[in-house]
Amino acid sequence: MKHRIGIVGCGGIANQKHFPALKNAADRVELVAFCDLIRERAENAAKEFGAPDAKIYVDYHELLKDESIEIVYVLTPNVAHCPISVAAFEAGKHVLCEKPMAASVEDAEKMMEAWKKSGKMFTIGYQNRFRADSQTMKRMCDDGEMGEIYYAQAHALRRRGVPTWGVFTDKSQQGGGPLIDIGTHSLDLTLWLMDNYEPASVTGVTFDKLGKTLQPKDQGNFLGTWDPDTYEVEDAAFGFVTMKDGSLITLDATWILNSTEERCASSYLCGTKAGAELTGVGGSNNQKLYLNKVMGGKQVKIDVDTSAGGVDFFDGDSAEPKDLECKTWLDAIEGKGELVVKPEQAFVVTKILDAIYKSAETGKQIVF
């Protein structure tokens, strides 16, 4: 029996990640309902990815009335994550919600409460955990090869990378800019690798020097020009996160910064036995894992090649992160494995991001 899935939000992340992954899992799932405020987008998605009798909605409440739908994907702008997810739990559905969990910690708390009452499965779309380099680094951390990790850097640094589609620069829809959009991935990776989800205090700073002032001829944005008159979010955000055990995480998240380098979905870890860096820049061919340790009395930097095969003609599990994310989610629902991205973990990510914004706004340290 295939899982019957309803989709709420048929925009970029649905088409770029979730629809292709679900199509590759066609032997396990059936997409039976599509909802979007722009009806044409839902119709197009249904034609390409849906079951023959897939239904179209513009109101997610109507989709949730279908008792045959078992799983709901919430793939909307950030501020809509909370009301849709809460309603889905109340309707008795499993929920996969795109990152971040919510636009505010208050909304995230409502989602956690609804999930716990529902008894259903819940995960957040942090697909960078499923990269080959991330998986390798996680195993090394869990095996103690890094020792105690007491300092980390979470990087989501773009020199010019403003998304020029959708509502990314609309604060009322997204809740923020690069921090909540891409900083969330780097922070999630870093917390997960450290296996540390107990922040003690947060200090944050945001800047809006360029997004609201740079004219098209001066932007140099590889994703096309943006309108400075409708740019409502930060250019860059920086966080200083002290954990209860005394360890420290620094976080940078930028769409626009006059920097000489770029690091996206990147994490740099320093432990008592070794150090490591997940570069995370660009596609899978550009993602690198480097180790720093002492060997033969010398400090060395090791380039870890995670693509090396184990035997002739076999390269191991070569699935894309989006496919592994989908498989892990379905396996967990079927009782065949554990979730990799747990709600409690994603909640802490939102808690820290929210604190960085509040600290930047008030000029004060946020203490938990």
Rank of each mutant, 00 (worst) to 15 (best):
D59M: 05
C82R: 14
M112Q: 06
M112P: 01
K93A: 06
L96T: 05
M101D: 03
V95L: 04
E106R: 12
E90G: 07
I71G: 03
L75M: 14
V105G: 03
N78G: 08
V79D: 04
K110L: 12
I69Q: 02
I84A: 06
D66G: 08
Y57D: 06
C82H: 01
Y73N: 13
I56M: 03
N78L: 09
V86D: 01
D59Y: 11
E90R: 15
H61F: 12
E67T: 14
I69L: 11
M111C: 03
Y57Q: 09
H94K: 11
D59I: 11
I71R: 03
S104V: 08
I84Y: 01
E67D: 15
I56Y: 00
G119W: 02
V86H: 02
A88C: 11
D59S: 10
D107N: 14
L64T: 10
V95P: 00
Y73S: 13
E90W: 08
V105M: 03
I56S: 00
G119L: 03
Y73C: 13
S85N: 06
A80K: 13
E113Q: 12
N78I: 15
K55Q: 15
V95K: 01
V86E: 05
L75D: 00
F122E: 04
S68P: 03
Y60I: 02
A114Q: 02
W115T: 00
K65A: 14
G119Q: 00
C82A: 15
M101E: 05
T76W: 08
A91Y: 09
P77L: 05
G92L: 11
E70K: 12
M111E: 09
V105C: 09
L75N: 10
K65F: 06
H81L: 01
V74A: 05
H94Y: 11
S85C: 12
V79M: 14
F122K: 02
E109G: 00
V105Q: 10
K110G: 02
L96I: 15
N78E: 12
K93Q: 08
I69N: 08
E109C: 04
F89E: 06
K55I: 12
S85Y: 07
H94C: 11
H94G: 10
S68E: 14
P100S: 11
S118Q: 01
E113G: 03
V95Y: 05
I71N: 08
K93N: 09
I69T: 08
S85V: 07
M112L: 13
T76V: 15
Y73T: 12
